[in-house]
Amino acid sequence: MNIDEQIKLITWGVEEIITLKELKEKLSKSRPLQIKLGVDPTAPDIHLGHTVVLRKLRQFQDLGHEALLLIGSFTSQIGDPSGKSKTRPALSNSDIEHNSKTYLDQVYKILSKDRLKIVNNSDWLNSLTLKETLKLLSQATMSKLLEHNTFKDRFEQAGSIRMHEFIYPFLQAYDSIHLKADIELGGTDQLFNIAFGREMQKEYAQKPQVALLLPILAGTDGVQKMSKSLNNYIGVTDSPKTMTQKILNMPDKNIISYLKLLTTIPREEVLEIEKNMNQNPDTDYILQIKHILIDNIISIYHPDGDKSDTDKLEIKLSDHPEGLIGIIDAIILANFAKSKREAFQYIQNGAVKIQNNPVKDRNYQIDLKTGPVLLTVGKKKFITLYVIYP
C-alpha cells in the first residue's frame, strides 16, 4: 500500500491531525513506526466508545507498525483531569491490577497480538528521581498549563485544582519521551495532553509525535458521550441480543458515526449509505442499515454469535432442590434489580416476561427443570437461565 493509500485509510474517521505533513513524512520512513495509545484502567470493562481509538490502533498494526498499548498504572493514581469538573479519586493498586487484567482480556477482541507491545508506565515513572522530575516540570510554564480547558474553566470558576493534577500532562508527555513515540492516538478531549507531549519531546531533542485525534462517540441516547455511568453504553461483552436491542433503540443520527468508527465496512460503502440516507430517509431503509451495523458489530465481538443470543446465568440445582426459583429472586440474581422492592415494581409495571410471556404475579415460580428459560425485564435486559445439575 503506497503512502497516499495509507493516509486515506488512517485519516478515515479522524477528527484532527497535528500535522498531516509530519504524518506523511513519518510514513515514508523505511521502518515500523511506534504508535502509542495510553489507557488508564479506571474501570474493569470497556464499551464501544473505548474501541474507537483501539480500532485505529489495529489499522496501524495491519499496516506493519508497532502498537504500544500503554497501561497507565502510575497515572491512574492521579487520574486524567481532562473534562473533569473536580479532582478524580485515586484508585488503589488492587483496583488498577484487576481493571488492567479485564481490560486486556477485552482489548484482544480488537488488537492483534502480533506487533503489539504492552507497556506499563509504573516501570519508568516509579523510578524518576526528584532531580529528573524537577527537570521535567521546568520545561513548561503555569500560563501554558492554564491553556488546558479543564484547568482554565476550574480556575475561572474558582474551582479546586490540586497540585498533582497539574503534573498529569507532564507524566503523559514523559511516557511519549520514554517510548520515543512517533504517533499518539487519543480522543479529541486529549488535544492538550498530546500536543503538550509534542512540545516536551522537542525539549528532549526528539522528533515530535504526530497527534491523531478521534471523535468522542455519542452514547445510545444520541446526546452525551458513551458512558457506563450514564447507562447509554454498549459493552464489548454485552450479549448479541443486548447489542441488537440497544442499536435498534438508538437515534438514527448515530448510524453514520457508528458505521465509520465501529465497523469494518469499507469507506466507500459507508459514504454511499450516508448519501442514500440523506436522499431517502425511509424508515424501512434506515432499519435495514441498522441491521447491517448490528451484523458487523456482532461479527467482531461475537464471531460465532447470533442476534438472538443472550447472556447466560447458571443456577445450581443444589441451591434450588425442587428446580424452582421465584421471579423476584431471579431478577435480583441477574442484577436487573438491586432490591426486592425494585424487582416488584418491574412486575407491577408489566416489564417482566418469561419466555416472552408477561408475568404479573410477584410469587411466580420459574421451572428450571424444563430447560433454558428466557427472562426479560424491560426492553434492554435479557438473560437465559440454565440449571446446573450436580
Results as ranks from 00 to 15, higher is better:
69 L>H: 07
267 R>S: 14
136 L>H: 10
343 A>S: 09
360 K>F: 07
386 Y>V: 04
281 P>H: 13
214 L>I: 07
343 A>T: 05
258 Y>K: 01
323 G>L: 11
96 I>L: 09
2 N>A: 08
181 A>D: 00
276 N>M: 13
130 L>T: 15
59 Q>E: 14
236 V>Q: 08
380 K>E: 10
350 G>P: 12
200 M>L: 15
371 G>E: 08
38 G>C: 06
183 I>L: 13
73 S>I: 06
7 I>W: 03
2 N>Y: 04
126 N>V: 02
103 Y>V: 03
56 K>Q: 11
243 M>C: 13
134 L>F: 15
311 D>W: 00
222 G>H: 08
103 Y>G: 04
194 I>L: 13
363 N>C: 00
301 Y>Q: 05
379 K>M: 01
132 E>M: 06
132 E>S: 10
256 I>Q: 03
90 A>V: 14
347 I>V: 15
210 V>S: 05
208 P>I: 02
153 D>I: 00
61 Q>C: 12
120 N>E: 02
18 I>Q: 09
347 I>H: 09
335 N>M: 07
233 Y>G: 02
175 D>P: 05
171 L>D: 02
16 E>W: 10
326 G>L: 03
106 Q>N: 12
205 A>P: 00
263 T>G: 09
120 N>T: 00
45 D>G: 02
74 F>P: 04
164 H>Y: 13
7 I>N: 03
49 G>V: 03
352 V>M: 12
92 S>Y: 09
292 I>R: 15
223 V>P: 03
319 D>P: 00
172 Q>C: 03
247 I>N: 12
11 T>N: 13
273 I>N: 13
196 F>R: 03
57 L>T: 06
30 S>C: 07
352 V>L: 11
239 S>F: 02
345 Q>F: 12
271 L>H: 03
103 Y>C: 03
270 V>G: 01
240 P>M: 07
285 Y>W: 06
54 L>A: 10
144 K>C: 09
343 A>M: 05
24 K>A: 12
160 S>Q: 04
239 S>T: 04
341 R>A: 11
308 S>Q: 14
368 L>Y: 06
209 Q>S: 08
39 V>P: 00
57 L>V: 06
34 Q>D: 14
